[in-house]
Amino acid sequence: MTEVLQLLIYGIVLGSIITLGAVGLSLIYGIVRFANFAHGDMMTAGAYFAFFFVVTLELPMFVGFPLAMAGGALLAVALDRVLFRRLRRTSPVVLLISSFGVALMLRAAIQLVWGPSVQVYEAGIEFPIRFLGLGIKPDQLHILGGSVVIVVALHLFLQRSRTGKAMRAMSDNVALARVSGIDTERVILWTWVIGAALTAAAGVFLAIDTQLHPVMGWRLLLPVFAAAILGGIGKPYGALAGGMVIGIAQEMSTLVISPGYKPAIAFAIMVVMLILRPAGLLGARR
């Protein structure tokens, strides 16, 4: 029983990381209207930006973390200006190819700058806090707390702010949003900023929980997509639920199958979901 609860805790930690990535992916899918295959590597980029601020410049994490999110947002906006915006005008499927290329280029660039080996923000072993036979590391508590703060902030932004409302409107119906006077290009820009900042945050959390490596984000791309699809891709609130389900299922799966196949669980859930309810858990059939 303790083992199950312990895995549940790890699952929630992983789930909150996946959730942040999936919400960003889902927003971008819903508004910019393409499946961004560079999402995982944008996550990696966020983690390495934080590495630059925290390790190279020796800033404290609470300063480096928002700076890394800003860096991730800037990177996404730059990619949109240079590539994606131009390609959007031709054909949306070209965007898929381009983003797949961007994913590999980002990874190559990160490897060039920071090297191919594993790195950490802080060396040393952290001792978990023990409670009723369960353990959780302080870092993992920080990840959970940080994720909750970010998700609440996002919720307030989407519900209260003008831009957030415009984003939801555009996600529901682009044509309708445009005729009601919404500047769609501006909303797309904001979507990149927010989606990429969330993704960068997920990357930093992932690096805190595990370690930095140039393929860390690519390895998480499949779970993130699975979470977004589970929640009904294009629906950020669904991605919240999807991320938790995928995270917990991946950790729990080690009770039953070899840990080597942990990443396959996300795929299995996604396939079952695609067969049973392609519109997602919360999604109605369109």
């Binding site: 499946a35 295959f37 898929l96 791309l221 499949l222 997509f225 699975a226 699809i229 196949y261 990443p263 396959a264 996300a266 795929f267 996604m270 396939v271 695609l274 392609p278």
Partner: peptide, 12 residues
Amino acid sequence: YLAIATIGIAEI
């Protein structure tokens, strides 16, 4: 979805 599924199958 097909694209994502093919990433998945390659990974598995």
